[in-house]
Design a protein around this nucleic acid. Structure first.
Length: 266
DNA sequence: ATGACCGTTCCCAACGGA
């Protein structure tokens, strides 16, 4: 089975591209972030035509997340329990797979704007609650995937300019420690389980020909629990839709999970 | 050094994004 994560930067604008992409990439689950639309404006009918049911936590103008799935979703949790947050950033659900239930957490991490700002403080506070939630979910679900727009570069190699951007937003030690804390709970960055091209990124600034010059960041991730690690078959970033007219600034990241006997991950 | 591009909104200029 294949899962994907994509920050679509407005589903209103991007719906045709999402549908076109799904036709070429008939994934089993797609986690989307930055829907920028309210629940009642979610295009359920159009996505149904593409073969998907949707579990949605919308919000007008900002944020908003959804899971698209071919089979029904169960045990849906919206946002982070215990955090009173008006921003719609997390949606979690269980879907059935060949080896049993798979828990999927789809999150749009806080941007944080600038270290030291109020928004950065909110980012760290939100991350603390996310970590607690993921910890609880891991105790409950062995087969777990945490996907989304993390708004963190995990390592220097995930940034086009790690020296110039040192200690700026997405590059701080605090953010990277939070990322590491998630790994330490028993998650692995699926992308780094495979050999990857140098300078693999998932986001490029619209300005300054960022994409053409490959001045990007890898801030979109799919982490899988240790129990799923032997099932990892492939993880990649699909830059194709970033080349389309009026693209999202993010590219989708995909992961294929299969038979545990296929030990291709390094 | 600065801004640059995009999507959003009852202020269509100002904000948020990363």
């Amino acid at each position: 089975m294949t899962l994907a994560s994509w920050n679509v930067n407005s589903l209103n604008v991007r719906l045709p591209q999402v549908q076109q992409w799904l036709q070429a990439n008939p994934v089993d689950v797609l986690g989307m972030q930055e829907l920028k639309l309210a629940d009642e404006r979610f295009p359920h009918a159009q996505l149904q035509e593409s073969g998907y049911c949707a579990t949605v936590l919308g919000q007008p103008t900002y944020n908003g997340v959804a899971l698209l799935h071919r089979s029904p979703a169960h045990e849906v949790v919206r946002n982070l329990p215990g955090l009173d947050d008006p921003q719609s950033r997390v949606i979690s659900a269980s879907v059935d797979s060949e080896w049993g239930r798979l828990r999927v957490i789809n999150a749009y991490f806080v941007n944080g704007q600038e270290p030291g700002s109020e928004k950065f403080a909110y980012k760290m506070h939100w991350l603390a609650h996310l970590k607690q939630f993921v910890q609880e979910q891991l105790q409950q679900y062995e087969h777990l995937v945490l996907m989304g727009d993390f708004n963190i570069t995990a390592q220097d190699c995930d940034s086009w300019d790690p020296q110039g951007l040192r200690d700026t937003i997405h590059h701080t030690q605090q953010e990277r420690q939070a990322f590491q804390d998630l790994l330490d709970m028993g998650l692995v960055d699926a992308f780094r389980c495979f050999e990857q091209p140098e300078k693999s990124f998932s986001w490029w600034d619209y300005r300054m020909l960022g994409f053409q010059k490959n001045r990007g960041l890898r801030i979109d991730y799919i982490l899988v629990s240790t129990a799923l690690r032997p099932r990892l078959q492939r993880c990649w970033i699909d830059r194709t839709p970033r080349k389309w007219p009026k693209p999202s600034d993010h590219a989708p990241v995909l992961v294929s999970l299969g038979d545990a006997k296929a030990q291709t991950a390094t």
